[in-house]
Every structure is written in C-alpha cells, then in structure tokens.
Design a binder for these strands. Sequence first.
RNA 1: GCUCCCAUCGUCUAGCGGUCCAGGACGUCGGCCUCUCACGCCGAAAACACGGGUUCGAUUCCCGUUGGGAGUACCA
Length: 501
Amino acid sequence: MSEVRTRVAPSPTGDPHVGTAYVALFNYCFARVHGGKFILRIEDTDQKRSTEASERAILDALRWTGLQWDEGPDVGGPHGPYRQSERSELYREHARQLLDTGHAFRCFCTAERLGELRKQQIADGSGLLGYDGHCMGLSADEAQRRADAGEAHVVRLIVPREGACRVDDMLRGPIEIPWTQVDMQVLLKSDGLPTYHLANVVDDHHMGISHVLRGEEWINSAPKHLRLYEAFGWEPPVLCHLPLLRNPDQSKLSKRKNPTGILWYRDMGIVPEALLNYLGSIAWSMPGEVEVFSLDEMAAVFDASRISLGGPIFDLEKLTWINRKWLRERIDDADLVERLIAWKLNRDFLAQVAALARTRLDTLGSLADIAGFLAMGRLPLPDGAFEGMAEPGELAEWFVMVEEQLNVLPGWDKDAIEAVLRRSAEHVDQKLKKFLPPFYMAVTGKKASLPLFDAMELLGRDIVRDRLRQATDAVGGLGNKKRKSLMAGLTPLLDQAAQAG
RNA sequence: GCUCCCAUCGUCUAGCGGUCCAGGACGUCGGCCUCUCACGCCGAAAACACGGGUUCGAUUCCCGUUGGGAGUACCA
C-alpha cells in the first residue's frame, strides 16, 4: 500500500473552531498510526470571506493544540503551495480539461433566473431542486464565443440524471445516493476561482491524499467528488465521515449556542492536552476504557473502527474534568508554573492590568479582587445581579444586540468595542450611564470594576461573547420570536460594526 | 418537501449472538478520609426508542416506525 496521507483543510473565514481541531485530531492520528503524513491546507477560495487574520489565527490555534502538520503553508513541503488562492491556475486548467472532455459546461445563467427557477421548483413540490440544465443546450462554439466575448459565466459539472452513486464510507460501508439528488454543481465561479468541490478534488489528488476524514456534512456532496475523480481518471481517496459535534439541543455545534472558538478554551485555562484528550474521547474511545490519555498515546493505538457514529454533544463539564486530571496528574509543579505564565500570569498581561487597576488599588493584594475576573472562565454572577437595572426582557435584548455586533467586528480593539456600545445605547434610546451597568455586571461580575471597554479588549472576543450569553440566560433568555424581531431592526448597526476597525 | 446519516443511563461511551436482570467515566445524591476545602476512596439513583422478523437464543443481524441530525449556494 502506498503512503497514507491525510489532511485538514480549514477555510480562513472566521475564528478558529473546535470542529477544526476535532477533524484535525483524527486525521493526525490516522496518519501517525499508519506511519504516514498529515497535511494542512488552507481553503481560501472564497474571496469575499477569507482573511489573512483568520488564517493566522487558525494556524496559531492549531499550533497551540500541539497537532503538528508535516506539510503546510508555513512549513512548506513537496506538494505546495498549500494555500488554494495560490493555485488558481491549476484549477482553471482542470476546469478547461473537463470542458474539453465533455464532463462540464459553461453556464451563463443569471442569479435572477436561478432564483426564479428555485422558487418554481419549490412551488412544484416535486422535491427535486437544482440546476435545470438550461445552458447545457448551448453548442460548444457558441459557449466559447460568448465566453471569449467576456460574458460572465460559471463552469458546471455534468452529472448523470438517473441511477445512483455508490459512496463507500470507511465506517458506514456503501451509501447509495440517487443522481437526481446531485446538482450540476458550479466548479468554477464567475470570478474564475474554483468552488470547494473542484479545488478539493484537484488538491487531494495532486497532494497525494490517500484518506479523507471529514465532517459528516459532506456525505451528500461525495457523489460530486467521486464524479470528478472519475472524470479526471483518478483514483479517489478512501472517504471517512466523522460525526458532527453537537450543541446540547443536538443541533450542529454553533457559536450562537456554545463557545466554539479554540481560543475560548485556551483563554479560560484549558490546557491543549486536555482539549485534545477530550476531543479524542468523544466519537472515539481508547481501548481499555482509559479516560485520560495524551496525543501520542492516542496516535499510537488509533483505530478508526472505534469511532462512534452518533453525534456527540459537546460537554464542557467533562472537558473541565479532563483538564483537572491533566492539571493534577500529568503536569508537574514546575510545568504548572510554566503553564500559568504562558497563560496570563506574565509581565505583558500584568502590565496591561496594572495600568488599568492602579487608581483602584488599595494594597498590592487588592489586585486579585479587582482584576480577578480577567483570569476567570465563567463568572459566578451574584444573586439579583441585574436587579434594578432594567426589565429582564429588555436586558436580554441589550445583551443579544451587543453580542451580535461584537461578533461581526472585523478586529477586536477598545475603540471599536466602545463604538458598538455607544451605538447600541443610542439605538435603544438610553444614556450610557443607564445602559452600561448591566454590561459591567455581565463582563466583570461586579457593578463597579475596571474600565469596561479595556476589560473587554483584554478578555478577548470569545470570553466576552460567552459572558454576554451567560448573562442573557441569567435574565431569562430571549425567545426565538423576540430574537428574530430584534435582529430585524439591527441590520444598520451590524453593517456599521462589520465596517469598523 | 426531497435525499442521506445516526439511535445503550441526563451527557461521553464499552459491548462487535449466549459471558449483560448491560460495564466505565462526567454530572447528581449519600458516606468515608481529613485542621477547612480540594484530592482520594466507598456507595446509590440512572439506559439497550418502539414494532416486526432471522435464530435454540438478540443490546448485538435484517426490515419498518418513531425520534434526532445533516445536505439541498457562484460557503466551505
């Protein structure tokens, strides 16, 4: 058997997500146990949403976990570049090849027509959605001519209109998906860049990926990928779909309902070994019912057949327990000190805190009381924390409103945060003096504390968002209906926030 | 709607036809230890979704129902 090569391929369109670490972990272990290689590839084909900052953050976060890739945009490797935006030409060539071999066609349909088509299909109730093949009727000459004339178009994949595609999943066995359910997927967008489907297949092939372990959400598009491999005459990799991480309500893990940022776990004091240990203990089990294990221990005995298929609910309590085990059993005194320093008890961090705290300092020791909230993960809110500030329902709206804006802020700095709070207060027609107190309570756990905007900057977005969510729950939460109507009026504020910084 | 995936305690799971009136862990509740707390230890409550098959025998295999999830984009 040829070399085992796996990859994780995050899209740099947001904060580093635990789901990425989860998928990376399994790919890493699979490669290790087979003596193969683990590759990191950046899937930045979405020009509108990809950012350099996000890519950097993802790389940093992944590095923090301790999952080390053998090839990637930062470390290089024989199959680079490892950033899809730097391989555009390769995808265009391959799209051209599909056009030439009759596996794809140019489509000149407008977004309007596509929207109409979709509406029509839904109204029909036939259950069949997707492109109707309109531009397939174009002669090759005409399509070529219109393309040469500079008319905007995309390249779509031709898929069989009958029969079924057999997808062999490493864990589930054969899965049959009717071709009628598979859309004539866009492969090359009108901006000339590939969609995931094309880029993914082309890269996996050229990078020699032998096994693809990815989220379950991809099962339904596997036929498109298989079709592409066939069209190119390539052997497809072994596919293995991992169960999706879930919120407590069983829906796919989302930041709306849960902390999903890797950095949230880091900032609240979870050690990376514990995060990986936890991720490895849901969906997979160590032989012998061992609960606490290191990455090396896992990678040494990893057996994909021990993956459970039910979607696990992400359980913060269990993760915290594993973290406690690591802290007291697997990290010695000296190491613990190093961890604390690397985390927050260092000169840099203290310098920022001290500057904010000095006028409030009584004795040096009072720092702990004043700034303790900066070091805590979740805060114990005092009884009646928000009493007398505003009606609970109103407070919930305030919290959600601000949380939503903070979420779309491109950067994370004091000024942008302040602007969000000010605009929000204005939006609900409140003076800052009345509007801010609940936020002090939510973020710092006290009525009076360090300057709010600085504190928020220092805490980081993930922690602040989580605290606002906790506070929202503490005042009774916000119903779905109310949330919806609130969001409807928020568009201008969100737009402003998104453009800030 | 349509297609696909999944289904053991509240949660994560062990189990791959008899060893299971189902084992471990988190959490919860008792107790022990102890200068408090924590750690540690002991114990309790807590599950094979339902209905059909197959089989001498189903938690384990097959089918259906129900439930949950995902997909259905010029996002990945």
